[in-house]
Computed example of a mutant assay.
Amino acid sequence: MDANMPGKDGLTAAREIRALDRPDAAAVPILAMTASIFQEDRDRAAACGMSGFLPKPFDVVQLYQLPRDSLGKAARTRETQK
C-alpha cells in the first residue's frame, strides 16, 4: 500500500484495517511502499499496523521477499490466535 495515497493515505487505511471487527484484521499483511526512506517513516508505518516496509525505488529481490516474509508472519499470528 502506498503510504502517500491521495484522499486517504496508506497509514490511515492500515489503521482502519487493523481496527476492523474481523478475525483476519490483525493478521492480514499490509506492506508500506513509499519513496520516503527515513527511519521515522518506517516507525510510523509500523505504528499504524503495517507489517513491512518497501522503499522506492525497490530492489526486485526485496519486492518478492517482503510479501513472503509477511505471509509467514501472518500464518504464525493466526495459529497463535486459535
Rank of each mutant, 00 (worst) to 15 (best):
I37Y: 13
V61W: 08
G52Y: 07
A14Y: 03
P23T: 13
V60Y: 05
V60A: 15
V28F: 09
A45K: 03
V61I: 13
F58T: 09
A26C: 09
K56S: 04
R42V: 06
L71S: 10
K8Y: 08
A13L: 15
R76S: 12
Q81C: 10
D2V: 07
A46M: 04
K73N: 11
K56N: 13
D9S: 01
R15L: 08
A46Y: 03
A3H: 05
L63V: 13
L63P: 00
R68I: 09
E40N: 02
L31Y: 07
T34D: 07
A46G: 04
R22P: 01
D59F: 00
A32F: 02
C48H: 05
K56M: 13
A47P: 07
P29Y: 03
E79R: 12
I30G: 03
K8F: 10
D9W: 03
D59K: 08
E40M: 08
C48I: 04
L63K: 11
Y64P: 08
G49W: 04
T12W: 07
S70G: 02
R15S: 07
P29I: 04
R15I: 02
S70Q: 11
R15W: 03
M33F: 10
K73E: 11
A19H: 03
P6Q: 11
S70D: 00
A47L: 11
A45V: 04
T77D: 04
P67N: 14
I17N: 05
M1Q: 05
Q62A: 15
A45N: 00
R68K: 13
A74K: 08
A46S: 10
T34K: 05
K73Q: 14
K73L: 12
D59I: 12
Q65H: 13
M1D: 06
E16Q: 15
P6Y: 07
G72I: 02
Q65G: 05
A35P: 01
Q39K: 13
L54I: 15
P57F: 14
D43A: 13
G52I: 01
L31D: 05
I17G: 05
R22N: 11
D69C: 00
P23C: 12
D9C: 00
L66D: 06
A25Y: 09
A19Y: 10
A26T: 00
A74E: 02
E79P: 00
F38A: 02
A74Y: 07
P67A: 12
R76K: 14
L63T: 12
A32C: 13
A74H: 00
F53T: 04
K56R: 15
K56Y: 15
Y64I: 02
D41M: 01
E16S: 04
K82F: 08
